[in-house]
């Protein structure tokens, strides 16, 4: 049952990922990527990690991708242009991709974990255990992440602030 569900979701995730890379229109890519995130969230549920699954939807699908779609709609982007000068990148990309997939298949066949008994514990995914670990054993990383988030907020605000007035810029363009 879980296996069938896993293969269904894994197929969906891979199909959406390929579609994300394949489509030239950024909005199609974004919608496909949301599909990947949602199927990964369902896979986390089968891995008995409900907290991570819900956070995945909340952070990735609910916040990051909304921002991305907002930017795509705001800038009104058209389709991706084809490569003009760097055509050899197709070859490099394809080669690298094949290499990585070969590596994944190698991992699948060569690494044998049959000898090790997997610890069957569903308690690890509970909110309580995550919260306890987060605020006792891993307090320092959590604090560092908090500071990082604060820096990101300040950075994003400074970055997207309009430094020059639009009229001034137009005047400059006219001069050029």
């Amino acid at each position: 049952m879980v296996t069938a569900l896993f293969y269904l979701l894994a197929g969906l995730a891979i199909a959406c990922a390929i579609s994300c890379v394949y489509h030239k229109n950024p909005l199609y890519s974004a919608v496909s990527l949301i599909g990947v995130f949602l199927s990964l969230a369902c896979i986390y549920l089968t891995l008995s990690a409900p907290f991570i699954a819900v956070t995945q939807i909340l952070v990735y699908a609910g916040a990051i991708m909304v921002l991305v779609i907002f930017v795509i709609m705001l800038l009104n982007l058209d389709e991706d242009k084809p490569l003009n000068s760097l055509t050899y990148l197709y070859g490099v990309g394809g080669g690298l991709g094949l290499l990585l997939i070969a590596q994944a298949i190698f991992v699948f066949y060569a690494v044998n974990t049959a000898g090790q008994e997997s610890v069957d514990s569903t308690a690890a995914g509970k909110t309580l255990s995550i919260g306890l670990a987060m605020y006792t054993q891993y307090l320092l990383p959590v604090e560092i992440v908090g500071i990082l988030l604060l820096m990101a907020i300040v950075g994003a605000m400074i970055m997207s602030r309009r430094i020059r007035e639009p009229n001034q810029r137009k005047a400059e363009k006219a001069v050029e």
Binding site: I14, A17, A104
Partner: peptide, 25 residues
């Protein structure tokens, strides 16, 4: 291993995409 293989495949697709895509988004 099955999960790791899926993870590897997704990573590979993502890596190809970074090289293949031309726009920043």
């Amino acid at each position: 291993e099955t999960y790791l293989a899926l993870s590897g495949i997704l990573f590979a697709i993502g890596a190809v995409g970074v090289i293949y895509k031309r726009n920043a988004i």
